[in-house]
């Protein structure tokens, strides 16, 4: 390699990172072509060219739609519950000290152990996935909202009240603006939780969602389509995470 190129790479870590990714893909390609049984691994070049075929498989677009719908509803419910419970628990010292340990305890328990119960209560359709996503997504939002409310300087509340602000005005003009950065942090964590919960439930049992197709492709020893579907889902997850992360960065600055 010419010295100029080497120097350029040495100056820019981004290029080197790209190089690492290309190298990993090349190893994967070589391994899939010449070493590993094609029943188990497909080379990335074929995965990319088969993306069209994956989306063309009957039922896959509908399954992706269902998954997006489940994610959206679960996220919306998580945010609503998280905001309300977080405010109610966080606004008063007594309720915070009483209920935060319970919330932390629930958040800390491995919820995946009760996944079969969700299927039993909510059926094998989207409802159980949404419910399971909500139980994963709401706790981080509750905790960050409660913590955000707690961090408001008491002097702001006192001065607002002494200037005659009503409870609603205090909520609207003092508490909400201060809560916003931590609320968006909570939304980011909540999105991670919702993705985990919905995907876990989808993979566990599914009749028309993406979980059905991952099982189908696995059982048919069709790694090309399986990898294609996983890549689509991973891209979707990255996009959703990136949206809430951007919002978080933006609103964290907004206060200053």
């Amino acid at each position: 390699m010419p010295a100029a190129v080497m120097q350029r790479i040495a100056r820019s870590p981004g290029l080197a990172r790209l190089g690492v990714i290309v190298m990993l893909l090349a190893i994967w390609e070589a391994a899939a072509r010449w070493v590993v049984d094609p029943l188990f691994l497909a080379p990335p070049s074929r995965v990319v060219t088969s993306l069209g075929a994956v989306l063309g498989t009957r039922g896959v677009p509908a399954a992706l739609q269902i998954t997006v719908f489940e994610l959206a509803v679960a996220f919306a419910i998580s945010v609503a519950i998280g905001l309300v419970v977080g405010l109610v628990v966080g606004l008063h010292n007594f309720s915070r000290r009483s209920f935060m340990p319970i919330i932390l305890l629930l958040y800390g328990t491995p919820q995946v152990t009760i996944l079969p119960l969700f299927i039993l209560y909510f059926g094998i359709g989207p409802a159980s996935k949404i419910a399971f996503g909500v139980t994963h997504g709401m706790f981080p939002i509750i905790m960050t909202v409660a913590a955000g409310v707690q961090n408001i300087k008491p002097i702001l509340l006192v001065s607002a009240r002494s200037m005659g602000a009503s409870s609603v005005q205090i909520l609207r003009h003092v508490i909400f603006p201060h809560m916003i950065p931590s609320f968006f942090t909570g939304m980011r964590l909540g999105m991670t939780g919702v993705l985990l919960g919905v995907l876990l439930a989808e993979l566990y049992v599914s009749t028309a969602g993406i979980g059905y197709f991952t099982t189908l492709f696995t059982q048919n020893f069709d790694p090309t389509k399986l990898l294609g579907l996983i890549s689509i889902l991973a891209a979707m997850a990255i996009a959703l995470n990136e949206i809430v992360r951007r919002l978080e960065v933006r609103f964290a600055r907004w206060r200053d």
Partner: peptide, 15 residues
Amino acid sequence: YSVPIILFLPLYVLF
């Protein structure tokens, strides 16, 4: 790390 790695489970079951 920001990808839900649980997605790889079907792949790992295959492998």
